[in-house]
Design a protein around this nucleic acid. Structure first.
Lengths: 176, 176
DNA sequence: TTGAGGTTTCAAAACTTCTTGAAACTTTAG
DNA sequence: CTAAAGTTTCAAGAAGTTTTGAAACCTCAA
């Protein structure tokens, strides 16, 4: 049975919820943000039981959430001398975390998008007999493809920590 | 009763779904992406009825979705000479759309985040009597606040079309 | 080998969000 | 002013997601 460590202040729980919501907005699950925050604000590593207790989550939920956080490198396991169970601490380098998500998730998404557009492009030409119509649609798909490539370039630069120039984004797609 | 205009190819519907999913990932609703895409690929403006027919959506859903798209400026109303009902066409300047979302939604989010952290910061010091603990937590909250400010700066630059340097993001938060 | 402590899995329940269909409301032509 | 056409709203239902609790599964110490 977990030792009920420090009771954690109300304010801390609110920060946890805030970050939970932010994470949710970013496409992660809310509990991930809540747990990460508690660990980030704790000077010592915490065990699964403490986390569940503080955040009113079941052991199962805590376990699943911690695993997801580990997968993203947002949390690290640590061991305490005598103790058998695992303890966890937060990865504090938020910049690295963001970078990793951009690289592994966002970039991947943009690639899939570009691929889907290529497929569509191949399928499109045979569709309609009227040349002018066909070309209109194909041109639009090409425009989207260019957008996908641009996004890929931009993300790649961001991930590499290079300077980013957003202007082509605005220029190329203006319709004047 | 809508005229069933051109049947729209399978490929087009797939592009629509792809973009729908992309929009969903971005925090919008999938139908928004689907409708916008159909309009974007159509040489002529379309009416609500045609859209609903092609995408198998009810009139109500089409109406709500179009209104949301109009609110974001992603779609414009247009009128056809004799016809009474409204027709819609896609905003083609995707860069402007992205810019607007960054400005009105993301920036707002980061601001709220910063605000929540300030509140937490005020609430935190009184919580724990041990000075060293207290300072640890406050420092961490300050770190998050700095992150929020940095994000705000970055977004503001992006929205203004200025060059963006992502390195502070990586440097400041490294824990070495 | 056995048992205690801890973790993971998973089906069911609770909760959210999305979609529908029908009714109410607007608008415009006659 | 009336009626027809089109649009919007909204409550109910459907669909999808998240959370839980309990059982199965490890792992290590004795």
């Amino acid at each position: 049975m977990s030792g009920s460590a420090e009771p954690v202040t109300q304010a801390e729980l609110e920060v946890a919820d805030t970050i939970g919501r932010l994470m949710e907005f970013w496409g992660f699950k809310r509990p991930m943000g809540r747990i990460w925050t508690l660990l980030y604000l704790s000077p010592a590593a915490l065990g699964a039981a403490e986390l569940g207790e503080q955040l009113k989550m079941s052991a199962g939920a805590v376990s699943m959430t911690l695993n997801e956080l580990l997968k993203w490198g947002a949390v690290k396991k640590s061991w305490r001398p005598g103790e058998r169970r695992d303890f966890y601490e937060a990865e504090t380098s938020i910049g690295k975390l963001v970078q990793r998500v951009l690289r592994e998730r966002e970039l991947e998404l943009v690639r899939q998008f570009g691929e889907a557009l290529s497929n569509a492009d191949s399928a499109l030409p045979r569709a309609n007999e009227m040349a002018t119509l066909r070309d209109f649609k194909r041109d639009r798909v090409h425009e989207l493809q260019r957008l996908a490539r641009l996004g890929e370039t931009l993300l790649t630069a961001l991930v590499a920590g290079k300077m980013v120039d957003p202007t082509p984004f605005l220029k190329v797609y203006g319709d004047t």
